[in-house]
């Protein structure tokens, strides 16, 4: 318990450092949040005087430490301000809407990643050395080497036409559909999730499967497995119960590392399939130099990453204790 408290306390300087760094970097980035008003392609360009007046209006002329202090004091009250883009919605509202999309997407992907990745890995470990295992491993390695964008683009080409054309390519619901029964709507929604989730799973599964494979292989080599065999336990029990048990433990800890991924969203998938998730929001906010949104998002992802580490450490510790007890 003291350990936990201490870790939580240590987290504070880290988070503070991150916000400070983000703040400094975002102000250093050339072209501020108003520079789109200079783009003559989007209408009449604004004069420099007018620009300076607006900057003053928004408080960008104040010293940077004052601006940071103001941000920090309202952030401590969980007030993240309004977006600087023309929609001017409260940042918290924007993030909540995008988070709902991302969490659903990534959450489904995580469940599938573990649900499919672990059996694949155990299968590979159990059949280590056979030709079938080698084919599987090669396939997994190829998937691992392919950027998500490429996997997604290939999926789009494959599923846009032909027998699979019933899968929607964009968005989360069929636009213009009459308000239908809740069940039909849920089904429609699920259909929209198929391709993006498949893309996430394909790009992430090799990591999990290879990890599980390595874990189980290592476990099989342990002396206590030999001992179990010597005790005359059936081979399947040795492999699938004993080895698996210790082999997948690290994978559980890996979940901690997935937390930021869960929260950060996936830009590639969200762009390819036109989904309004956190990944897109992040990128769009950075591109628009939408300071308040960038700051809040950074804080969110950083906190999640940090929590993930903490979780992973705690799980590790718990597992180790479990091992000792066993």
């Amino acid at each position: 318990m003291r350990f936990l408290l201490r870790r939580l306390l240590f987290g504070l300087p880290t988070l503070l450092g991150i916000t400070l760094l983000t703040f400094a970097l975002s102000r250093l980035a050339p072209g501020g949040p108003l520079s789109d008003l200079l783009d003559p392609e989007q209408g009449r360009a604004v004069t420099k005087e007018q620009l300076a007046a607006t900057e003053k209006l928004l408080g960008f002329d104040r010293p940077l430490h004052e601006q940071y202090g103001a941000w920090l004091s309202s952030a401590l009250r969980f007030d993240f301000g309004r977006s600087l883009t023309s929609d001017r919605r409260p940042v918290a509202e924007k993030i909540a809407a995008a988070a709902a999309v991302s969490l659903e997407l990534q959450g489904a992907a995580v469940v599938l990643l573990y649900g499919l990745g672990i059996p694949l890995g155990v299968f590979a470990a159990a059949r280590a050395g056979t030709r079938r295992e080698r084919c599987l491993a090669a396939l997994l390695f190829v998937l691992q080497a392919m950027p998500t964008v490429v996997i997604g683009a290939l999926l789009l080409i494959l599923f846009a036409r032909g027998p699979f054309a019933w899968l929607p390519l964009a968005g989360l619901e069929t636009p213009g559909a009459e308000p239908a029964a809740p069940l039909a709507r849920a089904l429609d929604h699920a259909r929209h999730l198929v391709l993006p989730v498949a893309c996430l799973v394909l790009s992430g599964i090799s990591g999990i499967a290879l990890y599980a494979r390595a874990g189980v292989l290592e476990a099989l080599r342990q002396p206590w497995i030999r001992a179990a065999r010597a005790r005359g336990l059936p081979e399947w029990r040795v492999r699938y119960v004993h080895a698996l048990k210790s082999g997948i433990l690290p994978l559980v800890a890996l979940l901690g590392g997935l937390l930021p991924w869960l929260v950060g969203g996936s830009v590639a998938v969200e762009t390819l399939f036109s989904l309004p998730g956190l990944g897109r929001l992040t990128i769009d906010s950075i591109a628009a130099r939408d300071y308040p949104t960038v700051m809040a998002l950074t804080l969110l992802v950083a906190a999640a990453t940090w929590l993930g580490f903490l979780l992973a450490d705690l799980l590790h510790a718990a597992l180790r204790r479990g091992e000792v007890d066993a």
């Binding site: 987290g11 880290t14 988070l15 450092g17 991150i18 760094l21 983000t22 970097l25 975002s26 930021p260 950060g264 830009v267 992040t282 990128i283 950075i286 960038v294 998002l297 950074t298 992802v301 950083a302 906190a303 990453t305 940090w306 580490f309």
Partner: peptide, 12 residues
Amino acid sequence: VIETLLCFPYLF
């Protein structure tokens, strides 16, 4: 420092 770097969004 390591934690800060690890938690920092790289894209940015």
